[in-house]
Each structure stands twice: as structure tokens, then as C-alpha cells.
Amino acid sequence: MEESFGDLKGCQKTYQKTALSQYFAPQKIEEALEILSKYGEEIKIIAGGTDLLVQYYDRLYEINNWLDLKNIIELKKIRISKNQMEIGATVTHSQLENSEDIKKYFPILSQAAADIGSPQIRNRGTVGGNIVNASPAGDLLPPLMAYDAQFKLLSVQKEELIPAEEFFVGPKQTIIKPDQLLTQVILPLPYEKTYDSWIKIGKRRALAIATITLALVVKMAEDNKTIKEARACLGSVAPTPIQIKEIRERMIGKNFNQLDFNQLGQMVEDKISPIDDIRGTREYRKDVAKEIMINALEEVYSSWWRSYK
């Protein structure tokens, strides 16, 4: 924004184009990695463009080199392999929203995808873009974290698998290096007895950057009575999407009737430290975090109860 207003925010940067623009649209991941290893920070990767084109609106001429992922078919696939789901980096939000497999195994990922932007944005925007853009308000991030996702990062040299929780380091900051490409999101297929809930609070019903989001995933043990795993992940309450680990500790090994939802809600409120920004104040976010945690627990509980009966 500063650039487009020149003097407004003390930005005196002027732009002089030095070289001709280069545009690459390889068909193979390997070619893309080669290009990345050559250009590093000097190239912009574009997938759906729903973030990049907004950030560079009216000054696209400032980008010298482009790496467009659109021709890499491999990155557009959703597939099940052994005990895991592999989601290609350029799978769109619409694909996530509508995929039968995602709806079956990872319902709140599909719901979160359906809550993103508008149909136009969902048709273009990609899961990989949502991840590397690393907005604290990124809608897919809390569900991915709650489902224990890992991100596959490739470079010419090596392949790395990074857990979602280690990937984000700050607003718009991740550990990905300039020569690395995020190619896949890998999710372990859940047990049958998994119950989940997704809540997004925004200032309107569509096209709203989240004021606060919550993804809650609870897995039951074989007896379908004891909680085996519980992950509560929130967006827009910290510099990165976060998991409230204390919730996990408090819930594992318990039965639902041993839990005080109100107390768990309070725990979420106490453990987050949101800031005041244009989408909401700290006071509002803390207050609502508690309420939506209670609502999410109630939703999880009632779907468990229906299956238990």
C-alpha cells in the first residue's frame, strides 16, 4: 500500500526496471525446482494469485521474474495413499470444498475452504498459497494444524516434511527457503471415531477475513468413550495460527462427562493473547474465543452422542 501512495507513509522508494521480465510455467516439479535454485529470491511463485495479485495491485511491473505453477498437473491432485491423504499444493479451495474424500475424512477442512472469500476466490486460490502466505487469519490453517498436517518442501537438494505447527513463525513468515517449493500437504487418515467442529467469526457472512477462527478435532479411543486425542487450533488470535496445548493435556484420557466445557472455554480465553486490529479488538476476541470453544465442544459432544447411542 505504501508504494501506491508515494509520500503518504514516507516511502521514497522508486522503481527502475533493470532487466526484461521472465516468465516460467514448467510442467514438471523438477523443472520448477531448477528454476527456483537458479533465481531464489529473485522470482515470485504464483499459484492462484489471490494473494499475490492483490499485494502487487497496480504495481505488478515491479515483479521481474515469475514462476507459474499452473502447468504442473502433479500439484493439482488429491489422493489417498496408504494411511494418508496427499493434497497437492495447487489444489483449489473449491476442490477442497467439494471433494468427497475430504468431506468424508476431514470435514472441517472442507467447511473452512467453503468459508474462504467468494466463489471466484475459491476457484483460483490454492491450499499451498494459503499456507505459504501464512496469514494469521488464513482459514485453512487451524484445521490443517488440528488434523496434524505435514507440509512437503522440495528443493533440488532435498525433501523435507515439516509439521504444520513448526512451519509458521510469524505473520507472513514461515521457515520455507527461497529455493524450496511446497508441493504437498500430508494428512494422516483419521480413525473412524473422530469428531470435529469449525467456527469462523467474521464481520460479515462472506468475503470476510476472519476475526477469529477455531478448529477442534477430538479422536476417541476404541471404546468410543475415552478421548484419545484432542486438538484445539485457533486463527487470528496470535502472530501465527496456534494450538492450545493445554486443552489437549486436559482432555486426553477423559470421558466427555468428566469435562467442564466452561472451564475449557476459559482456558482458551486465558491462553491466547490477540491484538487489537481492524478486524477486532483484543477484548472481543478473548471473550468470543471462550464462547466459540464452548460451542465447538457442544457440537463435538452431540455428534459423539449421536454415534454413541
Binding site: 494469521p136 477475513i209 487489537d276 479488538t281 477484548e283 472481543y284 471473550d287
Partner: peptide, 22 residues
């Protein structure tokens, strides 16, 4: 009658710019 006025009864002064969160 935004979220905060309805829930908290008042609107608070807000800080930050879009670059802090997008």
C-alpha cells in the same frame, strides 16, 4: 451495531493496519 457493540456494549479503539494481519 458491530460485533463488539452488540457483545461488549462498546466499541474499543483499534490499532494496527492490514499489513499486521493479512
Amino acid at each position: 451495531l458491530n460485533l463488539e457493540r452488540v457483545l461488549l456494549g462498546h466499541s474499543l479503539s483499534k490499532g494496527g493496519t492490514k499489513n499486521d494481519i493479512l
